[in-house]
């Protein structure tokens, strides 16, 4: 077990090293900071960003937008998901909306949001529209997957209805909620940053990336990308931790 773990870590490290190696080679072959700056200068640019003047507001506001979008998606996704999971007609009503939302290109939302909303709301709105369908669909799937035998057992033992929902249905959909939340976050961060690039709120990673692009600071564009990846993986990790704390019965 331990040996396997270290072996996997070794392979992961190898893959990262290989990636950086290819990056270095490609940047050498272009030989231009304007097209692909080498990894070391990008690293310096990334570290510089951490101590830059508005770093906290830039990163903080992007995260805040993501969390607001996530919270709204989470609450509505679970609420509507439970309703749809328990009621066929409501599910029939909700299904086309979810399918439409999931198959609409993110850029369409953004372009429309730019017309409908104020700048600061655009990334949040986009975050909601990309995240909500994932969570809602997973909750519905979760309810469909609830073990009917357990519900029958609870009914025979005359367990009251509210207790069945609370103790049989809810725990059964928890793992589905987590997997929904995880994919929602993955797509959500990307969508938020695209939204920021186009709507240009005063602070935000997307705004900073766009500005860096305008000023041809290619290493800064990549540096912000690295920070965005770090944020995304941090929340992915956090979600996994919380899941392990809650889903203890596996």
């Amino acid at each position: 077990m331990n040996i396997k773990l270290t072996k996997n870590k070794l392979i992961t490290t190898l893959s990262v090293v290989l990636l950086i190696g290819i990056w270095k080679l490609v940047s050498l072959s272009y030989g231009s900071e304007l097209i692909l700056p080498p990894p070391e200068s990008t690293l310096v640019a990334t570290l510089k960003l951490f101590i830059a003047e508005n770093f906290i507001s830039t990163v903080g506001l992007t995260i805040l937008r993501g969390l607001i979008g996530f919270a709204v998606s989470f609450i509505l996704g679970i609420g509507l998901g439970i309703l749809a999971g328990g009621n066929r007609s409501f599910h029939a009503f909700l299904k086309p909306i979810l399918v439409t939302l999931r198959s609409t290109p993110v850029i369409s939302f953004i372009l429309l949001a730019l017309i409908w909303f104020r700048v600061d709301m655009v990334p949040i709105f986009i975050a909601f529209l990309t995240m909500f369908p994932f969570i809602c669909t997973n909750v519905i799937d979760g309810i469909k997957n609830v073990d009917r035998d357990l519900v029958e057992m609870a009914n025979i033992y005359r367990v009251p209805h509210h207790k069945i929902i609370q103790k049989v249905y809810l725990p059964a959909i928890v793992p589905f909620i987590f997997s929904g939340a995880s994919s929602a976050m993955g797509f959500g961060w990307r969508a938020i940053i695209i939204g920021e690039v186009l709507s240009q709120p005063q602070f935000g990673i997307g705004t900073a990336m766009q500005t860096a692009q305008t000023y041809l600071l290619v290493n800064e564009v990549i540096a912000w990308t690295i920070i965005a990846i770090m944020i995304s993986s941090f929340f992915e990790m956090l979600l996994r931790r919380v899941e392990r704390k809650i889903v203890v019965w596996r």
Partner: peptide, 10 residues
């Protein structure tokens, strides 16, 4: 700080 600069129309 003193104005709201809005870049909604890129």
């Amino acid at each position: 700080q003193d104005i709201h600069a809005d870049y909604s129309f890129p």
